[in-house]
Amino acid sequence: MKIRIKFSKHGNTKYVGHLDIMRYFQKAMRRADIPIRYSEGFSPHQVMSFAAPLGIGIESDSEYLDIEVTDSIDSSEAIKRLNSVMCEGIKIIEWKQLPDNSKTAMSQVASADYFVLCECNDISPLDKAEILVEKETKSGELKQVDIKPMLYSVKKTEGGLLMHVAQGSSGNLKPETVMKALRIDEYHIIRKAIYDISGLTL
């Protein structure tokens, strides 16, 4: 059966990259004795996938990973067991069963909320009809990209900015790119929520 796990990632763990977080959870599943399903074949691996990779240096209140289990466990028991093997900074918040036909978290991701801790008094550069930012392409060339269509909303809040941006395979805007458009170098990013196409959290 399919399970979606929600966790937060704070403190020093923001320096742990996405691939290492995958390995971290593979080992944590074994330490917590979660009856996770393994793939078939000569070198079986855990059936596990993440919603959206989080860049190094970014903290998060809501990360998601999907797994499959072979036996049912009580949600609170599973959360307790996983939290007992977590390091400081990573905390399991939810464990919920998904319908068998549900799509992976990764394919559902459509947008995300970020809080950017910074000093910013003027967000008017983002009001323009077109926000051009220089971006390096895969071949190393610089080209101008309009990020406006992917910036769904941005507002000033206490201590910084709250922004709602496109996330996922059909369009992805990094909060760092928005900060570049604002010409702000010093900031600290926290992912607050991830949404699907209908605007519901995963």
């Binding site: 403190g11 020093n12 990259g17 971290y24 190094i56 093997v85 390091c87 400081e88 900074g89």
Partner: peptide, 28 residues
């Protein structure tokens, strides 16, 4: 919440910053 001896600027500049942060599971 834990903290790091090196500041964020440096940690984000170096290769594999997790070499320097400690905090691994089972650390004393």
């Amino acid at each position: 919440m834990n903290n790091t001896f090196l500041n964020e600027d440096i940690l984000l500049k170096v290769e594999k910053p997790a070499r320097y942060i400690g905090n691994e599971p089972n650390m004393c």
